[in-house]
Design a protein around this nucleic acid. Structure first.
Lengths: 151, 151
DNA sequence: TATTGTTATACTCTATAACTATA
DNA sequence: TATAGTTATAGAGTATAACAATA
């Protein structure tokens, strides 16, 4: 087992700065497609789910009235669509349209290439370790917030 | 050497979601002190500098008119103060007030405690590994962009 | 009565363009 | 003329509170 040098950043500083780096990378790719960060996040969530408006607000951690506006603007651009839930006529399901899905796919491909580049100096083992540790942290958090990390 | 289970998220997904988690955590603590994410970022930058309005806009990567509004709102809350540059009467210097500095310090302490909690399910070894890997990624990125990670 | 979603309203943050004061 | 900063304006994103429809 190789020993590692002591980190020069605290855990808090390292995670904060890494999050800014990742965020800026994603924001740049989203902006290339004329989509804001909030819209990109919305579309990313809808990639694998068709949540109700309430569930969507919980997943985005915003108020349901904010989710209404976000979805309305995305709908006006033809990226998502509203349907009425068959099981509860009060509930609204939100799903990607084909153009919305294409945009998500393109953004994802570009962002994945960016992350590959960002991690390119790590060994394959270290890349896997970083991904696995991040996933565990997210799983712990999702469990605590009682939301599903893997839909 | 213990083997790790294969991650259920891709590196891109894991880093994207982790960045949202960290950002939301910081935003929540800032909100507790009635400060937005943008205000918190502004105050954080002013912790170690007294830039001109122009330099501030560059550091925040926003338009100078946006910086004007940001500083005006922070000034109205007594968190920052404007002074005229002695060397150029057009230029405005922005600096923290004592209450602004106290707020920065408190927010930093709270955020550090949050990160400790977020990582609490990891072993000490895994926490150190995550911090060290994140730091290496940031160092690699800073080197490539010819920027100093540690100023 | 409780829940789901929308609307009305207000504030923050951001950008573009036009403007003032100084260099 | 050029630069530093502000103002006017507009749009996105967010929250709170009140509301309608459904359960």
């Amino acid at each position: 087992m190789p020993t590692r040098p002591a980190p020069l950043l605290s855990a808090a500083d390292a995670l904060a700065q890494l999050s800014f780096l990742v965020r800026d990378t994603l924001a740049r790719r989203a902006a290339e497609q004329d989509v804001s960060m909030a819209q990109a996040r919305l579309l990313g969530i809808l990639r694998d789910r068709t949540p109700t408006m309430n569930e969507l607000a919980a997943l985005l951690d915003i108020d349901k009235s904010s989710a209404t506006g976000l979805v309305t603007r995305a709908e006006a651009r033809g990226l998502v669509r509203r349907t009425t839930s068959p099981s509860d006529r009060r509930a609204v399901l939100v799903e990607l349209t084909p153009p919305g899905r294409r945009l998500v796919t393109r953004t994802e491909q570009l962002f994945t290439a960016d992350v590959t580049e960002i991690l390119s100096r790590l060994s394959a083992r270290d890349r896997a370790a970083l991904t696995e540790l991040a996933t565990r942290v997210l799983q712990d958090n999702a469990r605590q917030r009682e939301i599903e990390l893997f839909p």
